[in-house]
Nucleic acid binder design. Structure first.
Lengths: 183, 183
DNA sequence: AACTATATTATACAAGTGTGTAATAATTTT
DNA sequence: AAAATTATTACACACTTGTATAATATAGTT
C-alpha cells in the first residue's frame, strides 16, 4: 500500500501552488474555497475531503515552515542559547530563516491571523529552548514555566522585529538577542 | 447630541448578553450572526450596521476585558516588576484578574482563536512592563526590543498556566514569576 | 407637542459554506 | 492485464454571509 495516492499528491500540490499565488494578491481571509478550487481545477468536494477550511489548510503549510525553522535551529546544535559570554555566529540561523521567509511570518503575525499559527511557532521555539537549557544546566530540573518564559521572550523579540517591518538586519537581531538575554 | 442613542445601547447590550450566553454552549467559531441575532431579537442588518463579523465583535468585548486587566495592574503602581528582592503581595492582582476571568482568557488562547486577541493582551502587558522598567532604570534608554522581550516572557508564563488548565493557584503563579525573573 | 434625525426593520439577492449521494475515473494490487 | 480500491467528480441541498433598498419606529431637538 502506498503512503499517498498519486491523485492525492497531484491535488495537494495543485492546491498549494495556487494558494501561494493567491496570497500574493490578497490576504488569507479573502481566499474562498470556491475560488481556490476553481483556479486549481478541482472540485470543492475534493477540497473538503482533505481539509476543513482555508485557514486550517494554511496551517498545514505553516507546519512545513516550522519544520524548516527547526532544521535551521538544529544547525546550531552545540550553540548554547544562554551562554552570554561568547557570540556564536552560527546562532544567526534562526533569524536568517525568518528573514528568508518574511512573507510567511507576516501571515502568522498578521492581525487577522489564527492564533494556532503562533502556537505552532511557540512550540518549536520551546523545544529548542528546552534542549538548550538542559544541555547547559545538568543539575537543576527545568520547569515548563521556565521554558515557556524564555521561549516566548524570544518570540517577543521576533514580534518586535515584525512590528518594525524587519528593518533591522539579521546580524543586528543577533546582537539584540544576546544583549537582552544578558539583561 | 447624545453620545449614544438609547436604541443603540439597547441593541448592544442585548447582543452582548446573548453572545456571553451562547459562548457557554459553543465555541466562538460556531456562533453565527444569524443565530446571535435571532436570539437577540434584532435583525442581521442591524448587527452589520455596528460590527463587521462575530470574531471582530468579540474583539470589542476582549478590549473591555483588557481595560479591566490594566486597572488590575495599575493597582500596583508602585510595585516594581523587576525588584526581585521583595515579594509584594499587591503583585497578585495580575494573576488574580486572569483567574477571575479564566473563561475569557481560554477564548483568547483557544486554538481557533484570532491572533488579534493575543496582540491586545500583549500590548497592555507591554505598556505595564515599559512603565515598570522606566521607573526602575532612570539612566539607560529602554528599547522596544527589551520591552517586548520582557512582556512576552510574562505572557509565556501565563500561556503555560493556561496549558496546565490553571491548576496552579494565584499565589503559586506569583512565586513562579518572581523565581523566573530572578533566573 | 411637533419636527427632525436616524436606528431598526422587512425583504431580497448573489455568493459562499459544508455536507450527502451516486457515478466515474485513476491508481494500486493481485 | 484484470480486479479491486479509492480519489475525484457532478449535482443537489439547506444554510450563512454581506449588502442593497425603502418603509417604519424610536429617539433626540426645538
Amino acid at each position: 500500500m502506498n503512503l499517498e495516492d498519486l491523485r492525492v499528491i497531484k491535488t495537494k500540490t495543485n492546491l498549494q501552488s495556487t494558494l501561494i499565488e493567491l496570497l500574493k494578491e490578497k490576504p488569507l481571509e479573502k481566499v474562498t474555497v470556491t475560488e481556490l478550487c476553481r483556479l486549481s481545477g478541482i472540485t470543492r468536494r475534493t477540497f473538503y475531503l482533505h481539509y476543513e477550511n482555508v485557514p486550517k489548510y494554511f496551517g498545514e503549510i505553516i507546519e512545513q515552515l516550522m519544520d524548516e525553522l527547526e532544521q535551521s535551529m538544529q544547525k546550531t546544535t552545540n550553540y548554547r542559547l544562554l551562554n552570554y559570554q561568547q557570540l556564536d555566529p552560527k546562532m544567526i540561523h534562526l533569524f536568517e530563516h525568518i528573514y528568508n521567509n518574511k512573507e510567511f511570518y507576516q501571515f502568522i503575525f498578521n492581525n487577522n491571523s489564527n492564533f494556532a499559527y503562533y502556537e505552532m511557532f511557540f512550540k518549536r521555539i520551546k523545544r529548542f529552548v528546552k534542549s538548550s537549557m538542559e544541555s547547559m544546566d545538568l543539575i537543576n530540573e527545568i520547569t515548563d514555566f521556565e521554558v515557556s518564559y524564555q521561549a516566548n521572550a524570544i518570540l517577543g523579540i521576533i514580534l518586535e522585529w515584525y512590528y518594525q517591518d524587519f528593518q533591522k538586519s539579521v546580524a543586528d537581531m543577533n546582537l539584540i538577542l544576546l544583549k537582552v538575554l544578558k539583561l
